[in-house]
Design a protein around this nucleic acid. Structure first.
Length: 795
RNA sequence: GCGUGGGUGGCGGAAUGGUAGACGCGCUACUUUGAGGGGGUAGUGGAGAGAUCCGUGUGAGUUCAAAUCUCAUUCCACGCACCA
């Protein structure tokens, strides 16, 4: 047991006083930018899950520095948004104060863990010097026609009294409080993110994101290639367009369905059953998205009394409205092919509609056939396969001017308004005469007023609306009386560009200079939770691509590698939560075992990309490992060089490579093996010891610096060069080779590592145990894989 | 339903075609110590006295050789979910 408390304090102080980890923009060394998601400084303090990713990135940062890179490893605070506001409301303090307190807690905890952040670049998204630029960037969106106001049905949380994005209300419940989400019409600021769908998809090629991260992005964007088909409404001069990915099934379209909100319905004046239609539409408007999608067992709908003309065969087919068609996707209208779509099939069965098979296969008496097959009942498509038929039909539609190939995306524009106090005020002013007018850029930042009341109002207005002094202003254009926008930005805003600010955090003239951004180039390695790989990453990429398009950032993609880590679960294998009482507080672990032990354990806990359950017993095992590292210093001898050259080179190779591919658990295990070997020796050299300490340093930086100093082994490790290995020296001169007969292991032989095939065979056949199996048998085949195995196939 | 990840000892996990179970936890025996969440030595997948046999969710297949590749199937976790 060593005095970890004082040792850790000592080195943390040293690093701070010497600004050991300060990154200098423009330095001649190669830049390397390592980023970890900055946290919400919540009232709960740092979670052991934070410790996992910060330590992982810290290990990478420390190794890269020693390898001669100019490493930027910054930290800041994502302090706007609902979590901070909720905390403040609950504890009856101003969010500003709450944030200040929480940041102090988080920062104190991080310092106790010895992370090598460059604290000189720290900022919070709530700093006026920062959100000034968030607001400025919003104005650029506006000026480039990328921001607009629209009245849209939005997801409304009656409990939080705020509008939620589709993303925030996934599954029909409020992400924060779990309340059922309702629909409400609201005028909202929107960012034209949908127009970036294709660019966001293509941009992935310029990144090195992990596959599962890329797939997450691709899924969210939701590209589908298909066709628009226009249907005329019989007996009128009206028409409507549907989106389909299977225009080849048009001969099987026996009816059409419009979303209840579809605007065509108001235009058809000849409806006999207008009342019934209106009743249905009204019912739907009361349902929220959750109810609509959850009730998918039973299809509902109403025939609107009008017929559409199938352009391909002139047949009149009935038009229905039903909420199984979403207004927000495609054109809000579909052609229904009940024979080959299970939803359409269900609907057709219920309303007794025709079901015409156009693809061979399945049994349409029982269910829709959604598989592939040859086309039937389809005139000029008969006999064709899917791909051929789609192409032929698309061309036919284009020739006859009743349709065209098209691409559709699930991703929609970004609803950018929040009726909240604790967010960046949107710097727009509404003038009765001039309409919406952007603030003058030189008047930024538009500060959040200091007020006592920051709780949301019951009518859905932002609390800012009540502050008359603040709301009332003059129009920047005409000088007449005008009012400020009282909505604020979503918390995704500040986190969409913070990694750019870290490159140049104290710039007063621009959000970051192009020179600084060109120097750092990209975030080389970005780490965060799986839960952020879809939304946050997509917003951030959109934001960057926009800035790139208006010439403000040097690359279209500013993040190169993105990986995501697994969660740390409670010891019972489920998510840590207060109510389950399985929360581990990093502070108490540091107190009892020390920061180095906690860091080592979290790196050793398992595959970094997978979830892992906490185990205090295993933590104690890692502490024992550090104790042994400490104690082995008593065995130093006066000899030079490595006692075991192969072990040294193997371990350098293993640890170096493992840190680069985030296999921290096997890196730690390699170091444990090294120590086990050292313990078997009577004594170790200073070079042996220094090597172990250097390789362990990125993971356990305090104890290793201390021991290095205590035994005067050399320069401070943080100022030293990372060891390199010689591939040739990683292999023993004599190695064990397995010998098997018919694939079953029957013995091992010890051979020179360069032994020839002939020598291997000869020795293998001499092995006593192997002899028993091959002696009087016929050997059909001899397989020799040098360095690995010899296998005899016998009859 | 679709997508992604994953099923390996009592437990966390190694091994991505070549000696399955590295490393750690736990456990057992011995030892040291006046006790301890201490130190050390040896052992530890299952069956068997043993030679040996059986073992990576399940079933097939490819191969001299499969945890690893292919196909099918099943279970678990997460994400999306009437997206036409």
């Amino acid at each position: 047991m060593y005095d970890f408390k004082n040792i850790e304090k000592k080195w943390q102080k040293y690093w701070e006083e010497n600004e050991t980890f300060k990154a200098v923009t423009g330095d001649s060394k190669n830049p390397y930018y390592i980023l970890v998601e900055f946290p919400y400084p919540s009232g709960a303090g740092l979670h052991v899950g934070h410790v996992r990713s910060y330590t992982a990135q810290d290990a990478l940062a420390r190794m890269k520095r020693m390898q001669g890179y100019n490493v930027l490893y910054p930290m800041g605070w994502d302090a706007f948004g609902a979590p901070a506001e909720q905390y403040a409301i609950k504890n009856h303090i101003h969010p500003k104060e709450a944030v200040k307190e929480n940041i102090a807690t988080f920062k104190g905890q991080m310092k106790k863990l010895g992370f090598s952040f460059d604290w000189s670049r720290e900022f919070a998204t709530t700093d006026p010097d920062y959100y000034k630029w968030t607001q400025w960037q919003f104005l650029q969106f506006y000026k480039h026609d990328m921001a607009y106001k629209a009245t849209v049905p939005v997801n409304w949380c009656p409990n939080c009294k705020t509008v939620l994005s589709n993303e925030d209300s996934a599954g029909g419940v409020c992400e924060r409080c779990g309340t059922k989400v309702e629909q409400k019409e609201k005028s909202q600021w929107m960012l034209k993110m949908a127009s970036y769908s294709e660019d966001l998809l293509k941009g992935l090629d310029d990144t090195n994101f992990a596959d599962r991260v890329k797939l997450g992005q691709i899924n969210w964007i939701g590209k589908s290639v298909g066709a628009h088909v226009t249907f005329k409404v019989a007996g009128t001069d009206l028409d409507f367009t549907v989106f389909t990915t299977r225009c080849d099934t048009l001969f099987g379209a026996t009816y059409c369905v419009l979303a209840p909100e579809h605007k065509l319905i108001d235009k058809i004046t000849t409806l006999d059953n207008k009342e019934e239609v209106e009743k249905y539409r009204k019912e739907c408007s009361f349902k929220n998205e959750m109810e609509r999608t959850e009730l998918n067992k039973d299809k509902t709908g109403v025939f609107i009394g009008a017929y559409a003309i199938n352009p391909v065969n002139g047949k009149e087919i009935p038009i229905y409205i039903s909420d199984y068609v979403l207004a927000s996707y495609g054109t809000g209208a579909i052609m229904a092919v009940p024979a080959h779509d299970s939803r359409d099939y269900e609907f057709a069965k219920k309303f007794n509609l025709d079901i015409i098979p156009v693809i061979e296969g399945g049994n349409i008496e029982k269910e829709a056939y959604t598989g592939d097959g040859v086309h039937i009942n389809s005139q000029f498509l008969n006999g064709m396969n899917k791909e051929e038929a789609i192409n032929t039909m698309a061309n036919w539609l284009e020739e006859h001017k009743c349709g065209e190939k098209t691409v559709n995306y699930k991703m929609r524009d970004w609803i950018f308004s929040r009726q909240r106090f604790w967010g960046e005020p949107i710097p727009m002013i509404h003038c009765d005469k001039c309409g919406w007018v952007p603030m003058n850029e030189e008047d930024l930042p538009l500060l959040l007023p200091d007020v006592a009341e920051y709780e949301p109002t019951d009518n859905g207005e932002s609390p800012l609306a009540k502050i008359e002094d603040w709301v009332n202003t003059t129009c920047p254009k005409c000088g007449k009386h005008a009012k400020r926008e009282t909505d604020t930005m979503p918390n995704w805003a500040g986190s969409s560009w913070y990694f750019l600010r870290f490159m140049d955090p104290h710039n007063n003239h621009e959000f970051a200079s192009i020179d600084a951004m060109k120097y750092w180039n990209k975030v080389d390695w970005y780490n965060g939770g799986m839960e952020h790989t879809a939304r946050h990453l997509l917003y951030a990429r959109f934001w960057v691509q926009f800035l790139y398009n208006i010439g403000l950032v040097p690359n279209k993609e500013m993040i190169w590698t993105r990986v995501s880590h697994g969660m740390i679960l409670g010891s019972n294998g489920v998510k840590m939560s207060k109510s389950l009482g399985n929360v581990i507080n990093p502070d108490s672990v540091i107190n009892e075992y020390g920061a180095d032990a906690l860091r080592t354990y979290e790196m050793f806990i398992g595959d970094y990309s997978q979830d892992a359950a906490w185990s205090t017993e295993s933590l104690a095992g890692c502490k024992r490992f550090l104790d042994r590292v400490y104690r082995i210093g008593e065995k130093l001898n006066e000899e030079k060089g490595y006692t075991n050259e192969v072990l040294a080179h193997q371990t350098i190779k293993k640890v170096t490579n493992d840190i680069l591919v985030q296999k921290y658990n096997t890196a730690v295990s390699a170091l444990m093996i090294m120590l086990n070997e050292y313990e078997k020796q009577d004594s170790i050299t200073k070079d042996d010891y220094r090597l172990l300490l250097t390789l362990l340093n990125p993971i356990a930086p305090h104890i290793t610096e201390e021991l290095n100093e205590k035994y005067a082994l050399g320069d401070k490790i943080c100022n030293s060069t990372w060891p390199t290995y010689d591939e040739e020296k990683t292999v023993e001169s004599t190695i064990e080779i397995a010998v098997s007969v018919n694939g079953k292991l029957r013995g091992t032989i010890t051979m020179d590592k360069d032994a020839s095939k002939e020598e291997l065979l000869k020795k293998a056949k001499e092995n006593e145990n192997v002899k028993k199996y091959i002696d009087d048998k016929e050997i059909i085949k001899e397989i020799v894989v040098p360095g690995k195995i010899v296998n005899f196939v016998i009859k």
